[in-house]
Design a protein around this nucleic acid. Structure first.
Lengths: 344, 344
DNA sequence: AGGGTCTATGTAACCGCTTACGGTAATTCG
DNA sequence: CGAATTACCGTAAGCGGTTACATAGACCCT
């Protein structure tokens, strides 16, 4: 592995000049610059990142905080892979890498836990990370506030955070819910129920709000007994649907805040010998892979999955270079009409 | 951020002693050690990772090579999330982080592409990474050989590689296929076809081999026209099934090398008005989420998803500390009997 | 008592790169 | 033509650790 010093010697210049060739190219004479570049190329020189980070107090890495061994075992992010793809490719364009921060750990204690962000922030400092991307695992939004306050560039996904250099990206959950419920209204439904996510979850609450607005808009008075809380998991969708079907005046349509719960609802309907969509129309949220494959295929609100990653990367990079906070990003959603709503 | 020097001054010792307290605790007097530790704790001291890496030429990071903008667009790893969870948690236990290496890139050129691993290897060197984990995206196995030859600790997933400090972890694909096909044989089938993965893909070929063995074992002569190539995608499963059903003597059971293709087969069967499993029995491979949710629920061979990550982490760590190569790891598979095979 | 060990710690070089500062030669200007 | 810029580049001081080597007591032995 060639070092800057070697290049310098071979070129008959000082290490400072070599460094300048790569960092402030215009301050060095064109001839020497080319000479250095040529030799650097021959020797396949790459500046040592550790040394560079040590010297500049700035690495080319972004930290990813993603709590996995979580209080919600079995929870899977609905579109982690697409998100990572978007994130990675957008960061790559800036020459940045993604460092998945370890949770909990050993004596040198790293991440530790979201309840105690100190470890993560320390890791951020120790590695001179450029910033942090925070992935919500469904219910740790409040924990993110501490990160946002740390002063490091932070972008949270699906959780609104505030801080000197923090922002977030989220889907247009209100709009998505609006379009879903409007669609059901347009199909003639008036007894439309909703299965929500866990209380306090921001996307879920936004979806509920969109649901309510769409109903009022249609002159339908929202009924409290038509809004039942789930937790994004499939089983809760089943349970919620059972409760809904047991009402004196059961709904004819259900809007679930996640596809998983919609699938759960589907199972409940089947178990109750109800046909979907004829007896019970169903709309979900997320457009996960499963949605297109269940029978009937699920009508759902699709999110811009790689868009999350791309937007997060852009925001982080903007905050790294410029030194302020960025505007939150709201990604558009799109209603994907399939069979479970009865439109076909 | 406290530095070692500050600790040293406050304790009236030299920086060397401070460093020793953390790296060779037994070489320093107990009293001073405790004093240093106490002050370090008060100041919330954490050794700077960049400096440490620069000095020791060894960071606490493992690189993850995962080609996303791939020649196979739309390809999704069947269980990336579980794999990452396992990987991350096992690495955490050793105080290591996972660095997702950027693909392609900018002037400082990072990853570049799997076809040209030089970039990745350079990044590995520049960051003093402890080793590399290589995730197969379905068809870049041969590219991994170059990594394995680099001399860095490497563990490939689902691809057999060889190198001075390289190893791999894979499922017992032969065994999994064996159990799947034996199961079908046990249900009375003798006309059993198989849809394979892309040619050259190692797990796929192992599954084919298991399939053949199971047939012979049962006294059934494998027929070439019963083995049709897919590419792991759903659509190829549909197409393959159509070809199979068009045979003079169509199979009564199909074993697909991936769940996605099994789902594709299911769609083809439906389109041909065949009942599954009565007219056509189906078994898949992977046990992805979709498997349990399609109708009929898919019988499939489950892989130990987080186990991949855990095993990879263990192997990497073993190669980092000890300096040799590790034995390849073969994870057990398990047949999950659901409805598509007709056993119920 | 003098020499040899062992233990505990300090000294200083080094890892490889960045950058403030200063100097020299070439260029510009009055 | 001398002075003031300007362009270019070298010197050297970090960045924050690690570690080989040296040193200084304390202890043990003959």
């Amino acid at each position: 592995m060639a070092t800057g010093r070697e290049i310098a010697q071979l070129c008959g210049v000082s290490v400072a000049t070599v460094s300048r060739v790569f960092n402030q190219p215009d301050t060095v004479n064109e001839d020497t610059r080319e000479r250095v570049l040529r030799v650097a190329k021959e020797l396949d020189y790459r500046p040592n990142e550790s040394a560079r980070a040590l010297s500049t107090k700035q690495s080319t890495m972004i930290g990813l905080v993603w709590d996995t061994d979580h209080r919600r075992p079995g929870w899977r992010h609905p579109y982690l892979q697409d998100l990572l793809i978007g994130l990675k490719s957008a960061l790559s364009a800036h020459g940045y890498h993604l460092l998945m921060l370890a949770t909990s750990g050993d004596s040198r204690e790293i991440g530790v836990s979201l309840a105690d962000p100190v470890g993560y922030v320390n890791t951020t400092r120790r590695h001179h990370l450029g910033g942090l991307v925070l992935i919500d695992s469904g219910s740790d939004g409040d924990a993110f506030e501490a990160f946002a306050q740390s002063g490091f560039p932070c972008v949270a996904l699906d959780v609104a955070v505030d801080g000197p250099r923090a922002t977030y990206v989220t889907s247009d959950n209100v709009g998505g819910a609006l379009s879903a419920v409007r669609h059901l209204v347009g199909l003639g439904h008036s007894r439309i129920a909703m299965i929500t996510g866990p209380p306090g979850n921001q996307p879920s609450e936004a979806r509920v709000s969109g649901y309510r607005t769409a109903l009022r808009e249609a002159g339908i008075v929202p009924r409290d007994d038509y809004v039942v809380a789930g937790d994004f998991y499939r089983a809760s969708g089943t349970a919620a649907t059972q409760r809904l079907l047991a009402l004196d005046e059961p709904p004819t349509a259900v809007f679930a805040a996640s596809d998983e719960m919609a699938v759960g609802a589907l199972l409940a309907a089947r178990a109750a010998s109800l046909r979907v969509p004829q007896d019970l129309a169903l709309v979900g949220f997320d457009d996960i892979e499963i949605a297109s494959v269940v029978d009937p295929a699920l009508t759902t609100v699709a999110q811009d999955k790689p868009g999350f990653g791309v937007a997060a990367a852009k925001a982080i990079m903007a905050m790294i270079t410029g030194a302020g906070r960025e505007e939150p990003v709201v990604l558009p959603t799109q209603l994907v009409v399939r069979d479970s709503c009865g439109a076909r």
